[in-house]
Every structure is written in structure tokens, then in C-alpha cells.
């Protein structure tokens, strides 16, 4: 079967909305209800965070959600338990995002096999460097038809972007500025960088992440790429939610026209 991420980009090249949420947050068993609501109300892609004790690339909001999820009892084993059978209800592509240590400890091949079994389509591991992926882990990810999605930043050289593009599958995750998640930086400064990315005519679609929080920033990002990723703003929205479905509906309708 063709990877669901590729299927998505084959039919939609503009305004792709990817929403990040931490698994097991705000409550342990909210993972599936949040995913269901995201699909229901118009997210094109779901990026599910695997909580980690030491999330280096994340700002305070996502860190706190990670800590909370771990306190709720979330773990990789628990996550795969929750995801078992989720494809009966959810058809949009699902990406797991997390740090390399838990994956390494779970066993890279066992992890990939489990992802394929439950129906996960892609993985983002910000601290798995390109060289290590290429030398050691690429065949395993490919064997299970899992797309590994790499990050690029405004400081990434053209040569390196091309190399990352050649190793990536699914899409490229363009960090809108050099920062941890949830930082407010001026999108205007990033325009030149997005234009530069566009001109490179990369083989993968590009989604812009970090700093996207509302309709204006989503549209600005979408004008320069295939779409954008929202994380911190969504975590803030559902943190104290009494009604997940209603909160997700309100949040997404504030971003895109139905």
C-alpha cells in the first residue's frame, strides 16, 4: 500500500494542516479522542508526540505536556496499546514525533515493526542525525515503509538541504527559525528563507513548523510551502479542555475555513 502521507500530498498540495499533540495528554486516555476530533474537524495530518523525560528541542509548553503525559502513565508500550486498531476509525496519516533514546531502548526494528503493525506512516526524531540514519537505520525504516521526516532550518546550507531532501520521505519539516518549539519570532524575517526553499525545487513537499499559532501565521506559512504544523498553540488550547471535541472544533475553525 502506498504510504498515506504520499497519498495526502498527491491530492492536496496547498494549505495542508498538520497538528501536533502529545500522546496521553491532557489525560492518559485522551490520545484517541484527540486524534478522532482532529480528523473530524479538518486536520490533514496528525503528529503524535511520544513523551520523553528530556525533550531538548522543545519549549516549556510542550515540555510540560510531556511531563504531564509521563505522570499520567504514558509510555511507548502504552501508546502502541492505545493505537492498536485505531485505523478502523482514523484514516488521515499519522506521524510519531519523539526523541531517539526511547526508540533505541524499545529497539529500532521492534519500534518500526510495531508502527507498521498499528498503521503509523512516518516518524520525526529530531535528535537522530542524518549520518547515523544513513549509515545504520535507513534500511529498517524503509523495510517497514515508514517515512523518516527530517528538519531543516534557516541556517541549513543548500548543499545540506539537498542531502536531507534526498534522504527524507513524506515531507520536509522546515523550522521557521532557529528555536525551540513555541517561541514567538517574526515571520517576516523568514520570508527570504521560505522563498529560498521554494526555489530549490525539492523533491519532497515542505511543511513549516515552529511559531505557527493562528489563522494569520498559518496562511503566511502556507503561502510559501505546502502547509504548516501547529503544536504549542494546540497544546495550550486543549490543556484544560472539558470537552475535547468542542475544543478541537473551535481551535481548527479558527485556523481554516470549513
Amino acid at each position: 500500500m502506498q504510504n498515506r502521507i504520499d497519498q495526502l500530498f498527491a491530492k492536496k498540495q496547498h494549505g495542508v494542516l498538520n497538528i501536533y499533540c502529545t500522546a496521553g495528554f491532557p489525560q492518559l486516555n485522551d490520545t484517541l479522542p484527540v486524534m478522532t476530533a482532529l480528523q473530524q474537524h479538518g486536520a490533514d495530518l496528525i503528529e503524535l508526540g511520544m513523551p520523553f523525560s528530556d525533550p531538548l528541542a522543545d519549549g516549556p509548553v510542550i515540555q510540560d505536556s510531556s511531563t504531564k503525559a509521563l505522570q499520567n502513565g504514558m509510555s511507548l508500550h502504552k501508546l502502541f496499546e492505545q493505537l492498536s486498531g485505531f485505523r478502523d476509525r482514523i484514516q488521515v496519516p499519522v506521524i510519531l514525533m519523539g526523541y531517539f533514546n526511547p526508540v533505541l531502548t524499545y529497539g529500532v526494528e521492534a519500534f518500526c515493526a510495531k508502527c507498521a503493525e498499528v498503521g503509523v506512516d512516518g516518524i520525526i526524531v529530531p535528535d537522530l542525525p542524518m549520518a547515523e540514519y544513513e549509515n545504520e537505520y535507513r534500511p529498517v525504516f524503509e523495510k517497514y515503509n515508514l517515512h523518516l521526516i527530517f528538519l531543516v532550518t534557516p541556517e541549513t546550507s543548500e548543499e545540506r538541504i539537498r542531502k536531507i531532501d534526498s534522504l527524507s520521505k513524506g515531507f520536509l519539516y522546515a523550522v521557521s527559525s532557529s528555536s525551540t518549539t513555541g517561541k514567538d519570532k517574526d515571520m517576516g524575517d523568514q520570508q527570504a528563507y521560505f522563498e529560498r526553499l521554494k526555489k530549490l525545487q525539492l523533491s519532497n513537499p515542505v511543511l513549516i513548523g515552529f511559531g505557527i499559532k493562528d489563522k494569520a501565521t498559518f496562511e503566511a506559512a502556507s503561502a510559501h510551502a505546502n502547509g504548516a504544523i501547529i503544536g504549542t498553540a494546540f497544546i495550550k488550547a486543549i490543556e484544560h479542555s472539558q470537552n475535547i471535541d468542542e475544543t478541537v472544533k473551535t481551535f481548527i475553525s479558527g485556523i481554516i475555513q470549513q
Binding site: 531538548l56 528541542a57 542525525p129
Partner: peptide
């Protein structure tokens, strides 16, 4: 050993 860094730290 190695350098398991996110891309933001690469430069």
C-alpha cells in the same frame, strides 16, 4: 559518542 543533536544545533 557521536553527536545526536537536533538540526537547529548543527551549525
Amino acid at each position: 559518542g557521536g553527536a545526536y543533536i537536533p538540526e537547529m544545533l548543527y551549525p
